[in-house]
């Protein structure tokens, strides 16, 4: 393909996620998907929530199928939610701690994939420190395998974004009426990128990115967000406040002077939460750094839905896994 032919390159890039009927086969990024696809995920998750509210924890949808959790980067929390989601769909789960196994012996990512495919895995849940790793895996798997991105570098974390959308929908309803502020280290955040794409696709008219230039570069505007430099204006009358985790390593790269100054400028406490609408909800992808980006009183307060996000995470991942695996299997039919 001619590399100067941008439109078709972008299209090919986006279509890797879809089967030949245009349905979600791999879930690598929220970018480029349509509203129906995202809404289908949210509604399916709603049904799983309903089943679990009825006391039905496990359904037989993925019985006889094998899900391999390929975690090239440590994350016990995320891996556990994927594992639980797969088990509640009756799938067999293989947890592969890559850091300590094959690649440490010099085996390439491609070799690892081929070995797992030879073991007849049906789905790879991939977490990797490099942006684009999940795309790379999706480009190289056999047609019967579905790939879910559980976070790739700074690029995307689409299931986290979808559970955030689910949370917003449950508490706020119609996306087309909302103002949403994302506060903090957006430039290094795969979660924020996926949230921004999803919010746009679902029709949120006012998406704000709040933070200092070192964490929120002006060029983010090209993704369709408004950039704010202070909390007072950034949070003014918003319906949803999403606080991002501030990684400790940001202090070493001269991006910020100190966590103390960061909290004084951008930390969310009850006083500053008043800039937002009185019924605004506060979200955080976790784990929280209390006293760095969020005050404990806010994290535990009445407007916080942080623990709800964790609960919804299972249902949303069940939805994504069953939709993607179903469409992959269906795409295999002659």
């Amino acid at each position: 393909m001619n590399p100067t032919d941008q439109a078709s390159a972008q299209q090919a890039f986006e279509q890797i996620q879809l089967n030949r009927d245009g349905k979600l086969k791999h879930f690598l990024t929220t970018e480029g998907l349509d509203r129906d696809t995202l809404t289908h995920i949210l509604e399916t998750a709603e049904s799983f929530m309903g089943a679990s509210d009825q006391g039905l924890k496990k359904v037989p949808l993925l019985r006889g199928r094998t899900v391999a959790n390929l975690f090239f980067e440590n994350s016990t929390r995320t891996r556990t939610t994927f594992e639980l989601a797969a088990k509640r769909l009756s799938a067999d789960v293989l947890n592969i701690d890559i850091q300590r196994s094959a690649t440490a012996k010099g085996e390439s990512l491609l070799d690892t994939l081929n070995n797992l495919q030879a073991m007849l895995c049906d789905m790879f849940v991939v977490r990797h420190a490099e942006s684009g790793a999940a795309h790379f895996v999706a480009q190289h798997v056999a047609p019967h395998v579905s790939v879910i991105n559980a976070g790739d570098g700074r690029h995307a974390h689409p299931t986290q974004a979808m559970l955030d959308m689910f949370t917003i929908r449950r508490f706020k309803g119609d996306f087309r009426q909302l103002s949403v502020a994302i506060v903090g280290d957006i430039v290094h955040s795969r979660v924020a990128r996926s949230q921004i794409h999803a919010l746009k696709i679902l029709g949120v008219p006012d998406i704000r990115a709040v933070g200092p230039t070192t964490l929120v570069p002006q060029e983010l505007q090209e993704m369709g967000v408004s950039v704010y430099r202070d909390l007072a204006s950034g949070l003014a009358d918003v319906d949803v406040v999403i606080m991002l985790r501030l990684q400790n390593e940001r202090m070493s790269g001269a991006l910020l002077p100190s966590t103390g100054e960061y909290f004084r400028q951008y930390g969310l406490d009850n006083r500053r939460l008043k800039y937002a609408k009185p019924d605004a909800i506060v979200m955080h992808p976790g784990p929280t750094n209390r006293g760095v980006e969020i005050d404990g009183a806010v994290a535990d307060g009445a407007q916080s839905v942080i623990l709800k996000q964790v609960t919804y995470g299972i249902a949303v991942r069940m939805a994504v896994m069953s939709i993607a695996m179903g469409n992959t299997a269906a795409g295999e039919q002659p």
């Binding site: 349905k23 289908h40 509604e43 399916t44 709603e46 049904s47 799983f48 309903g50 089943a51 009825q54 039905l56 359904v59 037989p60 949808l61 069953s322 939709i323 179903g326 469409n327 299997a329 269906a330 039919q333």
Partner: peptide
């Protein structure tokens, strides 16, 4: 979530809830 045609046509659009 209990249909036997999952591997032929994928997950159905969800109708109602249990």
């Amino acid at each position: 979530f209990y249909r036997d045609d999952f591997s032929r046509i994928g997950l159905h659009p969800t109708v109602g809830a249990t």
